[in-house]
């Protein structure tokens, strides 16, 4: 899976500045080491597509481990994970677009938890997609997704 350095830098709060030197070297090493198991699922319900993607729970263990040893590594890992799961979602969205008929288009992808869409939608969408059984994504009591690098999203069809 290709993860862009620009995206990693953005998730490390570096804006558009690209990492150099030691930092760039370390990012490269960690990208190679990261246990990323991309999995995704989507389904159409009338005029809405529901999408769910994850990079798996092994990544979480790896990131927890790094965070005990080096804060830099933990930050880089977190950014790699965020960029990777976004990539999974982009790939899913591309599949969704491919499934559309000629006259259909989709609006930009959004996720529950960003107003006005309540976080509680996550659990409903996971259930509709059977995402826990199929790709191992579930929602906690406090409505967080596990594995932590997972995303639930919605694309609406416009004619």
């Amino acid at each position: 899976m290709k993860i862009s350095l620009e995206e990693i830098a953005r998730y490390m709060r570096m804006g558009t500045t690209l990492p150099e030197g030691e930092l760039a070297v370390r990012i490269d090493e960690l990208v190679k080491e990261a246990p990323i198991k991309p999995k995704g699922i989507w389904a159409r319900f009338d005029q809405r597509f529901f999408l769910c993607g994850t990079i798996g729970s092994e990544f979480d263990l790896w990131q927890r481990r790094l965070s005990l040893l080096s804060a830099t590594d933990a930050l880089i890992a977190q950014a790699i994970g965020a960029a990777a799961v976004e990539q999974v979602m982009d790939d899913l969205e591309a599949e969704v677009k491919n499934s559309l008929s000629k006259e259909e288009k989709i609006k930009h992808r959004w996720s529950p938890g960003y107003p006005p869409h309540p976080l509680s939608m996550n659990a409903e969408i996971i259930s509709l997609l059977d995402a826990t059984k199929k790709i191992g994504v579930s929602s906690t009591d406090s409505m967080m997704l596990t594995p932590s690098k997972s995303v639930v999203a919605v694309c609406e069809v416009i004619l």
Partner: peptide
């Protein structure tokens, strides 16, 4: 309690 994301806290700890 209830929060399983700890990257921010880990950064604070390291500093």
């Amino acid at each position: 309690k209830g929060d399983i994301h700890d990257i921010g806290k880990n950064i604070v700890r390291a500093l």
